[in-house]
Design a protein around this nucleic acid. Structure first.
Lengths: 356, 356
DNA sequence: CTGTTAGCGCATTCAC
DNA sequence: GTGAATGCGCTAACAG
């Protein structure tokens, strides 16, 4: 901390004292400069590793910094640099396993950078709209990662005007760089797997295809499901498609509806592992054996999937998050970078809920 | 966006033009002031809802703000206010279910406030030391929540000197406000439950009691375990206490060691639900019935616990996070607030892994 | 090489 | 009520 110093020049703005004794006072670059007997410019150069500082004065400055335990104010740096040194992440339901896993990838890369990570959690459509509206124009972040939420053209136009780089992860827009997987292919893989096991009566449980958040994955996986059925000459039964929200209760109910059909399915493709748990629960409650009575395959490959022996489609969740940030960092460095679409591969993971 | 305006006074720092056409330019308070024909002071007053602005001029300013779609720069505000308007959270393994749940509480409260949430994830001791060292003194946050990581006296002293309010959640230090639960009581509840079910050979699997992060919960729960055994006159068998890290593999191994004993336990108290899953897995692999052959009780009551029918000790994870932030906000408003210890209640949750 | 100066965009006295 | 001036702590020219 700066001790009381003698200098009483006209421009000693950094002048501080320790009157209270326990009153915390910020040490500034002026304190350090004065202590080291140099100008603040020199201190700044030392801080920023400028090569044009004589080694000897550098040492003096470093000593003063050490003595005062000085840390430059990031706020002041940011104002001066006109950068926030922060990256925002807009994600729905950030506590759900699949989003958490994506965030893990995001965090890992950001932690290695000079940026702070600011999370904007979205649990309602209203909140999403506010985030889409406010965050990019609020000068809070140098760049933005948006997960699983696809923006509209107006959003994208506004963001472009605001000059904020935005990268989409598991979401789509032609004018933005995005990291995605092929949900149609994923749905196809899962369904084909069931077909190849001999199943002919295959159900699909997912989010409502039309949902307020505009999540598209359920719809695309549905397409893959339909495509696979068609390719293998299986008829599509509308009642084999059931919708449920994220909750296990609703998913159990959806499963019940399937099981109560005159001609119930022998296999169920569920659009997320979380929901698949609801299905397994309903099956167990009915005393049905998995996979003998009913086979189940999920989607995502979250951590518990392995534990449950749940067959699923592995999605590179961590990787998409990490890659998204890497692309964002590049975009921040070079705003002219043209948008690209990066697709990461999916992988069928066969476990005990389909193959006993 | 600010259009080219006529005024060419000597101090028109906010002067901007749209030369590039698509070059994003920040609108400042000066642009708005000029457009509204007022001084920046007035604009600032309008922004901050100062009552001392004539309604008519307020409207003019509001119109200009609207026209330019002006948003004040948080960075500049922060520098001027000498507040970062950010709250930091230092948490280990922020993607593990129990920490995620705590974070959910933290996020919910912060989202309602004017503060941003910055997460500092800790996966190594080195990183923890860096965070303890750097974050509080780096002028990055107005306050700090630290989860499950107990600081030393030197840490606390340094933070006090830096003047950064710190609240502990699931961690302890006499000089800091902290939100905790009684892990001894939790361990006791779990163990007593097993005893009351008639079990006499009860094992305990936990983190290493001495671990590099200094997590104390395993140790306290161990005390509760020992206490319950003693209170009910049951002998403690050292080989009934096994340690494992967070991984399921290690926990399975620990379980195996227990099952291979000459006199294996009939019940296992596991210090976390996540580990309990490993135990269940090992039991299943051995073809042992739960709870008939071996009863299992976990700790935390994370979401999957219910799904698995896992008996456990419910910990108010969400609430501790939320309350931690509430206390922090108060502390930021009134730094003189003396430290307090808030203890939230635990609850035994009986499910199928102990009571068939 | 180094000191000085001018902003960065805002909040906040002080006068008027 | 309102405008002008000052400062928040730092970076980045610009002179020397």
């Amino acid at each position: 901390m700066p001790v009381l110093s003698a200098g009483e020049g006209p421009l000693n703005r950094g002048q501080r004292s320790l009157i209270g004794g326990d009153q915390a006072v910020a040490v500034t670059i002026y304190d350090v400069a004065e202590r080291a007997g140099v100008g603040i410019g020199t201190v700044s150069r030392v801080l920023n590793d400028s090569p044009q500082v004589r080694e000897k004065t550098r040492q003096r400055v470093l000593a003063a910094i050490e003595e005062f335990n000085y840390r430059p104010s990031p706020i002041a740096q940011r104002l001066s640099l006109r950068k926030t040194l922060a990256i925002g992440v807009i994600t729905p339901f950030f506590t759900r396993p699949s989003f958490v896993e994506r965030l893990r990838g995001v965090e890992a890369v950001i932690a290695e950078s000079e940026y702070d990570l600011i999370i904007y959690n979205v649990e309602t459509v209203a909140r999403r709209d506010i985030c889409f509206q406010e965050v990019p124009t609020s000068h809070r972040v140098d760049g933005l990662i948006i997960i699983s939420l696809s923006p509209g053209d107006e959003d994208v136009a506004r963001w472009a005007e605001a000059g904020v780089p935005v990268i989409l992860v598991d979401a789509d827009h032609p004018l933005l760089t995005r990291v995605v997987t092929d949900d149609v292919a994923g749905g196809y893989k899962a369904t084909r797997h069931l077909i190849e096991l001999g199943h002919r009566k295959i159900a699909y449980i997912s989010n409502p295809l039309d949902n307020p958040f505009g999540f598209t994955s359920s719809r695309y996986r549905y397409r893959g499901y339909r495509q696979a059925l068609a390719d293998f000459g299986l008829p599509f039964q509308p009642e084999y498609h059931q919708e449920s929200d994220h909750s296990r209760a609703q998913t159990r109910a959806a499963t019940e509806r399937l099981l109560s059909l005159d001609d119930p399915p022998t296999a169920i493709f569920v659009a997320s592992d979380t929901r698949a748990m609801g299905v397994l629960e309903a099956l167990k409650a009915r005393g049905l054996k998995v996979p003998d009575d009913v086979a189940v395959i999920g989607y995502d490959d979250i951590e518990v999937a392995e534990y449950l022996g749940l067959s699923t489609v592995h999605q590179p969740l961590y990787e998409t998050g990490a890659l998204g940030v890497e692309l964002l960092l590049k975009q921040i460095d070079d705003p002219e970078r043209s948008p690209m679409r990066v697709e990461l591969p999916l992988e069928l993971v066969v476990r005990q809920t389909t193959v006993g």
